[in-house]
Simulated scan of single mutants.
Amino acid sequence: MADVSWLVTGTRSGRPIVVAPGGADPSDAVVRVDAALDGFAGPVPRWYRATEQIGYWWVAIWVVLAVAVTLTTSPASLPWRIASGMTIGLLVTPISLALYRLVARAQARAAGAGSTDEALRRAADRARPSTPDSARQVAAVLAADPRSERRVHDLAWRAAKPDPAARKELEGLWEKADPERAALAKRQVAQLQAELDQLKADGKA
């Protein structure tokens, strides 16, 4: 990704986000867009952020709890109680994390917009989701011509609207800045399209 302040990678979604040229501080809008791209229509609840920070320790926590339960309630032999407790803990961990995420999303939706699409629309005047392709193109163009940053910023911002004309102009600058990679990308797209056309002709798509 280009090393510019107006094109950032979302810490939650991992998606490129482009901020509006000029204007007010876009930090809050970037956070909201990043959360929306990760499925949260409003602010991510603090308790859920805390559970995320625990990370892989959730596995150990659930395994210890499950083993403790089986040791005190199961009539099986000690090795079987330990083994079954560990198995239960490993099974419960992903289920519990999925449930936490569902609850957190519902809470975020209640505290924010009605949907992630609405959240993105609300922030669209200050921050918009971009694409990995756009980020790579911006990086290539700016590496070849750093003085074009203002123009490239405007194109990346409008392309994220999306604006087909801005998207085409940005691609044109990229083709000039990195013709080899641009040609390779075009060949790959053409090959993929040919495969899709063949699948359709065969009645498989």
Rank of each mutant, 00 (worst) to 15 (best):
W62R: 03
P94K: 11
R105I: 11
G85T: 05
R105M: 12
P75G: 03
A83R: 01
R101P: 11
A83Y: 00
A66R: 01
D28M: 09
S27H: 11
T87A: 09
V44W: 15
T87E: 00
A66Q: 02
T51I: 07
A50V: 15
S96M: 13
A68W: 05
L90P: 05
T72K: 11
P43D: 05
A66V: 00
A50G: 02
A35T: 10
D38H: 09
A36C: 10
V31R: 15
Y100W: 06
V92T: 03
R49T: 15
T87F: 05
W62Y: 08
A76D: 11
V31M: 13
T70I: 02
T93L: 06
W57S: 13
W47I: 01
G42F: 02
T70A: 12
A76T: 00
V103D: 04
I95L: 13
S96W: 04
A36N: 06
R101M: 11
S27P: 01
W62L: 15
G89A: 00
V69P: 00
A76R: 09
L99S: 10
F40G: 02
T87H: 01
V31N: 13
V69L: 15
I61R: 13
D28L: 15
D25M: 01
T70H: 15
Q107C: 10
T70W: 10
T51S: 14
L65M: 14
V59G: 14
A36R: 05
A29S: 14
